[in-house]
Design a protein around this nucleic acid. Structure first.
Lengths: 162, 162
DNA sequence: AATGAAAAACTACACTA
DNA sequence: TAGTGTAGTTTTTCATT
């Protein structure tokens, strides 16, 4: 839907207020957003469209409960690459990006190369995932798994200031 | 708003197909969902309502690009508690849950107690965050910060099988 | 599964800071 | 000129049969 790198329209108070609402529930009718922020529905409509067009809102999604679809293992994995040459790193990024079990992937400082959040059906499929993605991958030197006991907070919400 | 009365209606192929679509774009009209999965719009409508009512779809949200709202630091933090007594752990969970900079929080196995994903405006505000949340908190024994260089993948998408 | 009513999203245009 | 509000049009959602 929305994919536009940068059209820097600086966000004002109205935009921020709208974002705060949509981040919580993007099905909120424009009419009630308009009430909350004291604008007309048309103004809200235009602002939302602009926020989507410029990529401030990157996607509109339904959040699915992993348990409900029988994906009961969530793991956080620190991955250490064999080296940090850009070709090696880029190849790893591309691989992680297209692996469906990898829900999130961050490239980080501090010795660890990557932190992944991995979701699988059960422990057996987690094991076969590690074999496929780490052990059969030469550029992965080592990895450390932290199994999630409790998903305490998973809101992908950004604190929007002022 | 989504509840979670855990009414286990086992998901069939249609439900899964619908979820895959809504996880990508929850603004997709029911009419085009109906086309994709070969159901009537009414059937799609009923199924979506049921998925929301039973908490399989927990929320409907807009995803905001952190850079666009000038939140440029993302950090992954491993937190080690002083002890693992349930009172200590529960207090920490509650604290992290209500701290806005803590975007995600996982309670994990393997020595580390928690893994947090923290979003702040800049390094200075990250430092003041650590002071406030970790250093002035007796039950936090130690913590290790991994600063995110590249948010390679942040889809909060669950792989839905079959 | 199809129809129709209600609601929401979107568009056009005149107005204002 | 950029942005708003009013009002009218289209699309989507939802209830009824």
């Amino acid at each position: 839907m929305a994919k536009k790198p940068s059209a820097r329209a600086p966000l004002d108070q109205f935009d921020r207020a709208i974002l705060r609402i949509l981040q919580t529930d993007n099905k909120t009718p424009q009419r009630s957003i308009a009430e909350s922020v004291n604008l007309s529905t048309a103004a809200v409509q235009r602002r939302v469209a602009a926020l989507e067009a410029t990529g401030v809102i990157s996607r509109n999604v339904a959040v699915v409960d992993p348990d409900a679809v029988a994906m009961s293992i969530t793991a956080i994995v620190e991955v250490y690459l064999r080296d940090e040459r850009s070709a090696t790193v880029d190849a790893a990024k591309a691989a992680f990006r297209k692996t469906p079990e990898v829900q999130q992937c961050y490239y980080v400082t501090g010795g660890t190369s990557f932190v992944l959040i991995v979701v699988t059906r059960d422990m057996r499929s987690y094991e076969s995932f590690t074999r496929k993605v780490f052990e059969e991958n030469d550029s992965v030197n080592n990895y450390r798994t932290l199994v999630v006991i409790d998903r305490v907070k998973t809101d992908t919400q950004i604190p929007i200031q002022e």
